[in-house]
Amino acid sequence: MMPGEHRNLIKGLVFISPWIVGFLAFNLYPLIASIWFSLCDYSVLSQPVFLGVQNYVDLWHDPVFWKALRNTVVFALVAIPLSSFLSIGLAVLLNQPIAGQGIYRTIFFLPSLVPAISLAILWQWMLNGPMGLVNNLVRPFLNIINAVCGSHLQAPDWLNDPNFALGGLILTGLWGTGQAVVIYLAGLQEIPLELYEAAELDGTSAWQRFLHVTLPMLSPVIFFNVLMSIIGALQTFAVPYILTGGGDGPGRSLLFLATYIYQNAFDYWNMGYASALALCLFVLIIALSLVSVRYGEKKVHYSGR
């Protein structure tokens, strides 16, 4: 190495050292420590006692863990496609050259600026069974259905009925699609107009252009958003935690893996068990991310390649 290069290396390392120190102290060390703690009985206040794989055996037989995992996966499976379709659709609409385009874009983006805590408190009222805005919108439709079909359908008690609580949360999640819409909009504007012109010359319909031009060209952005959504959905914590007042929701229908980890770590002082749960979540996120990346390699179209 030349003296100049050596000096540059030192300088580079010095400038990057805050990040390296941060990574070692706040990422790598906690990860390694939690692997060790997951094999221990550890209450934070006392020394960890080695248990072997007991925490994992307990976890396997813990119905609450499976319930939390099921809720997390179901939420991800429903919320991610729903919010993806919605945000792509909105982005395509907001990309149309119409008057007041900027205003519409701002209107759709604004809700995503609301902090999670405020959002949860707001939705607590929106989803209120007897008085909430959502049910005020739903009731007229139900009344029509009841009048036509002679049925007795009632507006759901979103946050108190185990059958509807998760649905209520998914509805809450759609509030924040504005952020994804902005990213999709940026992606849409990167698509060369010549492709649309060529497709038009070939006599394609608008739907065919969307299917065969827009979607393939947008696929790297879709892939990025979906990957981020998977990670975000699996880490869902703040909104259900506030919606349920720090609890699990009716019949544990709003208990997510992240909440169960938090409860075990900081409420029950079972840090060992919480570490085992956290590692399971970590493995799940890594596995799903890898599957997505593999799938992305085959299906995502990168125009530069």
Partner: peptide, 21 residues
Amino acid sequence: PTFKEYANDLTTYVNLVLLGR
């Protein structure tokens, strides 16, 4: 010694009973 776990579980089960589920 397990008060918080106990209270949390009790809330869940009591709600299920009170809901008639």
